[in-house]
Design a protein around this nucleic acid. Structure first.
Lengths: 106, 106
DNA sequence: ACCGTACTACGACAGTCGTCAAACTACGAT
DNA sequence: ATCGTAGTTTGACGACTGTCGTAGTACGGT
């Protein structure tokens, strides 16, 4: 059996839909995650490392929505899943959108 | 009795919250309205003039959410309400956000 | 005064969403 | 093999949301 390199399904850049991206971003918890990922940068972070006011399962739920919308990428690394922002894809598809959101005070 | 010039409540620029803006934009019908308003430009348009696959009351509902989030401005004009995009406010608060969204294909 | 047009308000209903707890899987270390 | 850590899955629940129809308000024209 080959190693499972891409267990988690991600939409390709062309499959990303603006509706889903906006829906993914339109939640305080997910917006906070995106902000954190933007701050952390391209090296990414383990899911659990982002402090959130919700339980494990809710966290998984939000991270899934972000991933399936094409906002984030997740790759397994040991028992952890390293999450990163798909900055390049988003900036290409919707130039300015991410920066605009991150520019918001708070 | 004085004329009612500003019947409809709008948030001031400083009161606009990114959460609410994103939530307002995260609906296909409302996104379509925003696209139309962007296309039409600063002269605006009567609510009913935008063709939508929903009834009158649903239309009112969506336009209210957009207005209360600070995405659009509505001013009475006879029996109609002229709706415009608050481009300047949005571009100031979240530079690039609107352009990024409008850049999306479809 | 009356009518038509343009929109709003209210209540109802079905569907979605965020949340949690509990049970489960996957991997690494001892 | 066992255990602990990291994350997922499932089912349940309440809250919110989009939708509609009906009724109501506001304004302009005849």
């Amino acid at each position: 059996m080959g190693r499972m390199v891409e267990v988690l399904p991600h939409p390709a850049r062309e499959e990303i839909k603006i509706d889903e991206v906006l829906h993914a971003l339109a939640d305080p918890v997910r917006l906070h995650i995106v902000r954190e990922l933007a701050r952390i940068g391209p090296e990414g972070v383990a899911c659990g490392a982002i402090e959130l006011p919700v339980t494990k399962s809710t966290r998984t739920h939000h991270l899934r929505i972000l991933r399936e919308a094409g906002v984030t990428r997740m790759q397994p690394e040991g028992t952890a899943r390293i999450t990163t922002l798909r900055r390049e894809d988003l900036d290409t598809l919707y130039p300015g959108l991410l920066d605009g959101i991150l520019a918001a005070r708070q």
